[in-house]
Design a protein around this nucleic acid. Sequence first.
DNA 1: GGTTTTATCGCAAACGTTTAAGTTTGGTTG
DNA 2: CAACCAAACTTAAACGTTTGCGATAAAACC
Lengths: 341, 341
Amino acid sequence: MSQKVTLKQLAQILNVTPATISKALRDSNDISIETRKKVKALAAKMGYRPNIMARSLVSKRTFMLGVIVPNLQISFFSECVRGIYERVRRYGYEAIIMVNDENAENERKNLEFLSSLAVDGILIDAVPGNANHGILKDTQKMGIPFVSYDRSLDTLGFNSVTIDDEHAAVIVIEKLVADEKKRILYLGPTSGISVLKNRYAGYQKGLDENGLAFDPDLVIPCEIDQINAYNSIKEFIKKNIPFDAVMCVGGMIAYGAGKAILDAGYDIPNDIAITEFGDNDIVARLGVPFLTVYQYPYKIGSMAVDMMVGLIDNPAKHKKPVHKIIKSKLIYHDIGIKRKL
Amino acid sequence: MSQKVTLKQLAQILNVTPATISKALRDSNDISIETRKKVKALAAKMGYRPNIMARSLVSKRTFMLGVIVPNLQISFFSECVRGIYERVRRYGYEAIIMVNDENAENERKNLEFLSSLAVDGILIDAVPGNANHGILKDTQKMGIPFVSYDRSLDTLGFNSVTIDDEHAAVIVIEKLVADEKKRILYLGPTSGISVLKNRYAGYQKGLDENGLAFDPDLVIPCEIDQINAYNSIKEFIKKNIPFDAVMCVGGMIAYGAGKAILDAGYDIPNDIAITEFGDNDIVARLGVPFLTVYQYPYKIGSMAVDMMVGLIDNPAKHKKPVHKIIKSKLIYHDIGIKRKL
DNA sequence: GGTTTTATCGCAAACGTTTAAGTTTGGTTG
DNA sequence: CAACCAAACTTAAACGTTTGCGATAAAACC
């Protein structure tokens, strides 16, 4: 055993044709039971591993699902991925995980690779913007089905699994108001992907429903990036505009913002409360309590897989896109409270 | 454009053979410049994507590297993976990421899949135990080179990139002793993978060098699992054996142990200090200060890739296994300290 | 006993590429 | 002008599978 074992080699040893081996291994009743036994025994002994590429070339199925995820550092995403690959395996597929790092160029390469690999379907949490809409559309037309998770891609007509962002944002505001907060900052992009738009809409709706006036000065656009969030808040604090809470669109931003607030000497959450979406581990690094929207990422992932498998098995469903929305849950993290006996 | 475009189709349209298209796309100077232009233009227009499987079948190279990682929830691992895939891409490869979830059975399936995929090499952070040593050895013999990262696999003669676990553990003890800690628990497996053995050895050596007696009662075996760690500490506390610090072999364990200690009403770190390896986000969830060994996971990943590419390009290096050791850094996380102006 | 069935296997094409070797055409050389 | 050469393709085999169809022989049927 010093190079890869092939069907042909097994065939030669047993004095039959490769076809016989192939059929024997797949338990075709074209082949006698005894021959099957012999073949399987030899295959096991020689450590035979079928070549997926050769198989897929003819069978037109790879039983691989492409997964594109923004990054693996944010626990929300890694939980999604876990939901995906655990579920995928149950269906007899394998997940090919690719990271776009919130970068359209990377995502394009991911898509090109996955379509070159001829995966049976792609689960995607796409970057903001429409830079890749062309490739996405093309890839879909080539017969590769898509399901978008977390962030929906309505304009492309993909099936999707998302959360109730707008409603969740409203609930967050409600809770902040109940905590006597009155001047709530919104930190993050306000447009682009659906998630952002919905959260921003929820922010406005929440203010309205709770008798607070919308103040454009309290909306701070910033990129989805720690450093950028840090600097944005730092600059804002310099303006001396009073505020008592920051609603952040995600964990990275919440961490950067929280750090800036702490560095400025404020108390979280007494002076300024912070909230985020995703219940991300990284926010805990601040060591202060925070409010978060838990989005059941594992469930998002596994449901996206269910949807995809349905799509593959019954492409007719592709006609009308299906959108699943998962209900989120508000959580208050009491981190940093020292306990004593 | 409604199904996959192949070389053959392009050839038919341009009235040439598939071979011509293939060569044109790879800029062979077998083909005239104008033909090349025409071919490339058409390929772009039709959205042609080469079929990786067909290509790899003949070229015997996939330019894919398999990556096996214990999980993606622990930030140490996800950082390793980031180091890997970013580096891998620079070399023109793609990373196929698989998770074993610390489970030998999963890992076996991962290995079988990767070898079926005929990846050009496998980077592995293997599960404890030798359940898969057989497959690992076989897979290697079939011509797939291995590099182990984080955890080494000495007995199999794989190249490896690891950290200075033993020395790091000694430094941790040193620091704890400087903080007046005298009865230091060791929590986690003491044998199995190299990492565990080395940390345990460092624990003993550290005690010795700092004038503390080794007490087997202070060594608590437990699995690498939050719940298990929680229960282990909970049980230990019931015994009323005094202790003032816990050295945990990893983030999961540190989190479980820390929770148990807090639940029992103790103060961290004043009553009991906790330490871990990996600087994992999850420990921050406790909201208390902790001591950690930062292991430069990104560097571990990228160096493992360098090593692998070297191995692929020059298989002669396979003769004598190379072991790289990365120096770690001690960090004290001051989480949970409330700041005021 | 002739015919039909059944079991067991071989044959050969196909999947989409790559590549060494061959072919044709036209031009250059001595 | 014969001999050679380079340019620009084509041919065909190969990579490791799968699969429908055909072949053979033994068994079963009436």
